[in-house]
Computed example of a mutant assay.
Amino acid sequence: MRSPRRHPLLVPALLCAFAVLAARPTDTTDAADNDGAGSHGATDVGVSAQVARLYEDAAVATRQYEQGRTEAEAQRAQALRAEALLDRERREIAVLHEDLGRIARAQYRSGGGLPLTAQIILAGSPDELMRGQHVFSQTQLAVNNSIDKSRRAESRLAADEAKAAAAWQELEKRNTELADLKRDIESKLEQARWQLQGQADASVAAGACRGAVRLNQPRSAVTSAWLAPVETYALSSGFGSGGARWANRHTGQDFAVPIGTPVRAVGTGRVVKVSCGGAFGIEIVVEHAGGYYTQYAHLAAVTVDQGDRVTPGQWIGQSGTTGNSTGPHLHFEVRVTPEMGSGVDPVPWLSARGVVLG
């Protein structure tokens, strides 16, 4: 597994990127000035732009956090391997110490430590003297080798202990910083989301839409003719399901998403309706070729006007919980007329166009 020490600049770079994201100003003056709207409209545009920007920042923060977490897991594995190495080296040193003791005892019993003069006097023949010298030399060599191995092992042990301690400290520091920065961005996003929802609720209560919010959309990489109305979601109430909130059966497919999630046109079409109020709250209806219409309801803001042409993946609004809604989600319908009551099940309709929801 790749050691994180081979890329010492990666962690500081990630943390700097997080710091930039976390420190981005929440003042909406620039967005309002660019839009050129009046003071109330400028504030509305600013909050929508702020939510969109923080939504993207949060997505970047999440990707960087996950990347950092993956690297932290690799570092954790490295630290665990270092700990295992320490245990093995401790056992090896213990064995070496036992070997040294055994050699020393053998020398004592065999007389291997006698002076050369005494060995010459006591030797019965030159051959016996040579054999004694050979044993003595081999013994001394074994002792010296064992001492050297023990010293090298102890040196490695000390270095590995320091390395393991540093790895654990760096791991804990990185995890804490990544989590704190991600949490800070998400906190700012949550506050901005509910501010946006408050403005949407006021519009619905007044029965007057605020008008299109022109957001700077990311460059589209969409190549498909059809796609899901939101990028990341959890499916909730489906077409035809029952519930106390509906007079008969549920007429669309719900996508559970946070407030402010960019809502996308599922295909090429023309906006035929933008309205506020009623059970659907803020809603958009888009006409597509082939006599089909798609509806996007319970929005917090719209980014298109009636009559606009839209392309697959284009942001047409931001999700919310306006109208008859018990929580943040997108209500999506496919109809054969612009009006309610002509809906078809969106799931097989999208599936027939290559979009599998799940």
Rank of each mutant, 00 (worst) to 15 (best):
V135I: 15
T28S: 10
V274W: 01
V143Q: 13
G260Q: 01
V20G: 05
G124E: 15
R76M: 09
G358R: 15
P229T: 11
Q314W: 01
H134V: 11
H134S: 14
G327P: 09
P218E: 02
A31Y: 04
P328C: 11
E283V: 10
Y233W: 09
G101T: 07
Q318T: 02
Q295S: 14
R151M: 00
L178A: 03
Q138Y: 06
G124L: 07
R249L: 14
L10S: 03
T322E: 08
R214D: 00
A13R: 14
G317R: 05
W349D: 03
N144V: 14
A52K: 02
G320W: 04
G240A: 10
H329L: 08
A142K: 09
R249N: 11
M130D: 10
T28E: 02
P4L: 14
W168G: 00
A52F: 04
T294W: 03
R214E: 02
G207I: 11
N34A: 11
M1G: 12
G269I: 00
R193I: 12
G317Q: 06
V347T: 15
W226Y: 15
P12N: 05
H288V: 06
D127Q: 12
R53S: 04
S342P: 02
K188A: 14
G68R: 06
G320N: 08
T176N: 13
G113N: 12
S146I: 04
A256S: 08
A300F: 04
K273Y: 06
E333Q: 14
A167I: 07
T303F: 06
T28Q: 04
Q78K: 08
H7M: 13
L114S: 14
Q138D: 09
Y233S: 08
D127V: 11
E333T: 08
D30G: 11
V20N: 09
D87N: 13
R270K: 15
Q67F: 11
A123Y: 01
A58H: 09
A166T: 07
L86G: 07
R2C: 01
D305C: 13
L330Q: 07
P12L: 05
A74M: 11
A17F: 00
